[in-house]
Simulated scan of single mutants.
Amino acid sequence: MPRNHGAAAATDITEEFTHRPWHQAVQCSWDGKILQLTAENDYDIDGLALSDEFADAITACIAPAFDGQVEILSVQVFGTEI
Rank of each mutant, 00 (worst) to 15 (best):
H19A: 11
H19L: 09
H19K: 09
R20Y: 11
P21F: 00
P21N: 07
P21H: 01
P21R: 03
W22A: 03
W22I: 03
W22Q: 07
W22F: 11
H23R: 08
Q24I: 03
Q24K: 14
Q24Y: 02
Q24V: 06
A25P: 05
A25N: 15
A25C: 09
A25K: 14
A25H: 12
A25E: 15
V26G: 02
Q27P: 01
C28L: 03
C28A: 15
S29Q: 13
S29I: 05
S29M: 07
W30K: 02
D31C: 03
D31K: 07
D31V: 04
D31E: 08
D31R: 08
G32I: 06
I34T: 15
I34A: 10
L35I: 07
Q36A: 15
L37V: 10
T38K: 14
T38P: 02
T38L: 05
T38F: 01
A39M: 09
A39T: 13
E40F: 03
N41R: 08
N41P: 05
D42R: 12
Y43Q: 06
Y43N: 05
Y43H: 12
Y43G: 12
D44M: 11
D44H: 09
D46H: 09
G47C: 02
L48K: 15
L48R: 14
A49T: 14
L50Y: 01
L50D: 00
L50P: 00
S51C: 04
D52G: 15
F54Y: 10
A55D: 15
D56K: 08
D56V: 10
A57N: 04
A57C: 14
A57K: 03
A57H: 02
A57S: 14
I58Y: 01
A60V: 13
A60M: 08
A60G: 10
C61W: 00
C61H: 00
C61T: 11
C61V: 10
A63Y: 13
A63S: 15
P64I: 07
A65E: 13
A65P: 01
F66R: 02
D67I: 10
D67Q: 11
G68A: 09
I72A: 06
L73N: 09
L73T: 09
V75S: 04
Q76Y: 04
Q76I: 10
V77K: 08
F78C: 07
